[in-house]
Simulated scan of single mutants.
Amino acid sequence: MTREELRLLREIQALEFTVLEFALYLDTHLDDQAALEEYNFYSQQLREVRMEYQERYGPLHIMHPSDYPWEYPESPWPWQIEY
């Protein structure tokens, strides 16, 4: 795993955490417009970083569109990734 791939994975993890925390907060603070704007901002950032990662290194999840032939088995298995 390259430094750039690891950097993107860490950024994805941080953004996933942030989006989840905002979602949990918004569950109990429905009228907090500023929090909703932050949630939308970080959700968009997460979407962009995931797309960048997947374009460079392959799918993050098995439920990902594939070209023909089926490509998922060609990506590294979890135990093959070195952190």
Rank of each mutant, 00 (worst) to 15 (best):
Y57K: 09
E48H: 11
L30P: 02
D32P: 07
E55L: 15
R10T: 03
L24S: 06
S43H: 13
L26K: 04
M51N: 10
A35L: 08
Q13I: 07
R10N: 15
Y39K: 06
G58R: 02
H61Q: 11
P76S: 13
P59D: 02
L20T: 12
Y39N: 09
P73N: 07
A34P: 00
R56Q: 15
G58Y: 05
E37H: 12
V49T: 15
A35I: 01
L20A: 12
I12Y: 09
Y68P: 00
R10P: 00
G58N: 07
A23W: 02
P59T: 04
Q44A: 10
E38L: 03
E5G: 12
T28Y: 12
W77F: 14
F41C: 05
H61N: 09
E52V: 07
E11I: 03
P59C: 10
H64E: 11
M1V: 10
L9I: 09
E16A: 01
L15K: 09
E74V: 03
W70Q: 07
L46E: 11
A23R: 15
R3H: 07
P69E: 07
Y39S: 00
S43N: 15
Y53C: 06
S66H: 03
Y53I: 03
L24D: 11
Y53F: 15
S75M: 10
Y68L: 09
Q54P: 05
E48M: 12
L60R: 10
